[in-house]
Design a protein around this nucleic acid. Structure first.
Lengths: 333, 333
DNA sequence: CGTTTTTATGCAAACGGTTGCGCTATTTTA
DNA sequence: TAAAATAGCGCAACCGTTTGCATAAAAACG
């Protein structure tokens, strides 16, 4: 590979001149003719600045890392991670940064060696970390580094980006209530308390005893949605609507309800949560809550860039919104 | 951050001594007592070798890149990429490497600048590239770099890792044929010719006129599977089995067939392809073809590591295998 | 025309490691 | 006991950039 020395000597200038001209940042004035010569030499030799040398002197690598600690069965699914990741990647690339990904395993509070080296070896200009699970061991360690950091999700940190799950719950419930439903069953998830809180608050707003709503818990899967729906409707035949805490369970619910003779949405409405790509194409396109995942990457990167510039950006709470489709309808007379 | 000089002076040794002891590679002998002093100083100061400095002198960064050029609607889905990616990541981390991901956009043969810098700036020790789409602009460029490279998928390159799609097709068909089916409909995909070829060859082996099999083309989606299945069975009521070129279409097909009164697998067998996570939990768990995606990452990394050591590893063709579940059964009398 | 300012360029010191070679003691060998 | 081998350690060059400062030439100024 051609070095800047090669370029300089071919253009008959000093190394510093070549450097200043090629990294056209500096305000120094150079004769147009000199600039020309240098640039020409550079392209002729196919010169590419060596990144390590730059990093060494500038202290910047133009690499940022997305850290996704390994989840067990977190509410944060693989698909969601991928969506966020690709948002980050696109933005990174536009801004001239490169994206490194890391999924450290945390075993009984010990971080793996490779991960520690990555963080403290100066590889990185900044970090975006998924905080949908408990990442305290990592955060303890990170707090000793002075590395720009944005945390995604519920884990508490000064600079974060998270979704308003309470509003998410509220949106589902208010939608059904506004359609006139009062007999509403819940297909819930234990892991997402805020969402449940939102549901309950909306119910309370309409004068319903929030805690006495029929409720079954699922485990994220379609199958668990089927089971829960059947249980609910058998125990409470007068239900006219169901709130499912994610789309997969909602789809399972709809399928089972239709199998056992309940029309959706004519007889019973079902609202989901997450707005998966599939949900739009589902047999009965799902009314659901969209958390605008595709925007996360860009927003997180913006925060991180601001931090790296030394600013102090505001944290962001993303307001989810209702995606109105065909699985809900007004309550029967 | 403490530098090696700090460590050296605290341990009362020279920088070179400290370096050699801490990067315990060298065969040089040092007094046990000296080693002790140096290591102690190192931990006391929390010394972490600066990666850029190392990279500069050694020419190695211990970073490898996974390049996934943006697909349009390639047969290679997001989920599959993620699965492979996490395989690579896990292996990387175990081997002390870091993983950078890049999804360059290719517009009319022009590569984006950031991507070019990444590849030619010495950021990387090696590259794993997804070659399921046409990546010739990238490959033209890469061929001028002497960077260890492994290509995943069909794009031709000396060091590759790919799936035997022909055998994949063959497996589906042979399975049905072995179960006694002879009236078989195809829900196919245009993009995967090899798979079709395998299907036809298997048919031919059993003396069936391969080209006269009833066939509908889908577009990857569940919905298209539903449509295709209904069309096929209406036009050919005596079909006893269907081959779907992916699982999503297979699931659509099964759902529709059951809706219109055909029991699966009792009346009609359906075999899918890909073995998605969902396929196992589907109402009628899918008999399908598994391409062992979780192994790809490790295998690719092994090839790459060998290349980086200067060896010349063999390319790999992964043999898919049949995942036998409940959506297929012996043909009726 | 001498002096100051500006313009255009070069020198050399960093940045933080690694590594070839050389230098002492000390031990081994003949 | 002298010569040779070896153990243990340090000197200093080098990797490829960036950048503060110096310098020479040209321009502006009084």
């Amino acid at each position: 590979m051609a070095t800047i020395r090669d370029v300089a000597s071919r253009a008959n200038v000093s190394v510093s001149t070549a450097s200043r001209i090629l990294s056209n940042s500096s305000k120094e004035k150079y004769a147009a003719e000199t600039q020309e010569r240098v640039r020409e030499a550079s392209t002729e030799l196919g010169y590419r600045p060596n990144f390590a040398a730059r990093a060494l002197v500038s202290g910047k690598t133009r690499i940022i890392a997305a850290v996704f600690p390994r989840f067990h069965d977190s509410p944060f699914t693989a698909l969601a991670s991928l969506q966020i990741l690709s948002g980050i990647e696109a933005y990174c690339s536009d801004e001239g940064y490169h994206l490194l990904i890391s999924s450290p395993k945390i075993q009984d509070g010990r971080l793996d060696r490779n991960f520690v080296n990555l963080l403290s070896g100066g590889y990185l200009d900044g970090v975006i970390m998924d905080g949908h699970s408990d990442i305290s061991p990592i955060m303890d360690f990170m707090s000793r580094l002075e590395l720009p950091l944005v945390v995604l999700g519920t884990y508490p940190y000064q600079h974060h980006l998270r979704s308003d799950n309470q509003m998410g719950g509220r949106l589902m419930m208010e939608h059904l209530l506004a359609l006139g439903h009062r007999q509403i069953g819940l297909i819930a998830l234990r892991d997402i308390e805020a969402r449940m809180l939102g549901v309950r608050m909306a119910a309370a707003d309409y004068g319903l005893d929030a805690c006495s709503l029929p409720c079954e818990y699922g485990n994220f899967s379609e199958q668990s949605g089927e089971l829960a729906a059947e249980k609910l409707i058998r125990a409470n035949p007068d239900l006219t609507a169901m709130v499912a805490f994610n789309d997969r369970m909602a789809m399972g619910a709809i399928r089972r309800l239709q199998e056992i003779g309940y029309q959706v949405p004519e007889r019973i409405s079902v609202v989901g949560h997450d707005d998966l790509p599939r949900s739009r194409d589902f047999k009965t396109p799902l009314t659901t809550v969209n958390h605008r995942l595709s925007e996360w990457g860009g927003l997180a990167m913006n925060m991180l860039l601001a931090l790296m510039r030394g600013e102090c950006p505001e944290s962001i709470t993303i307001e989810p919104r209702l995606a109105l489709r065909q699985s809900t309808a007004v309550a029967l007379g």
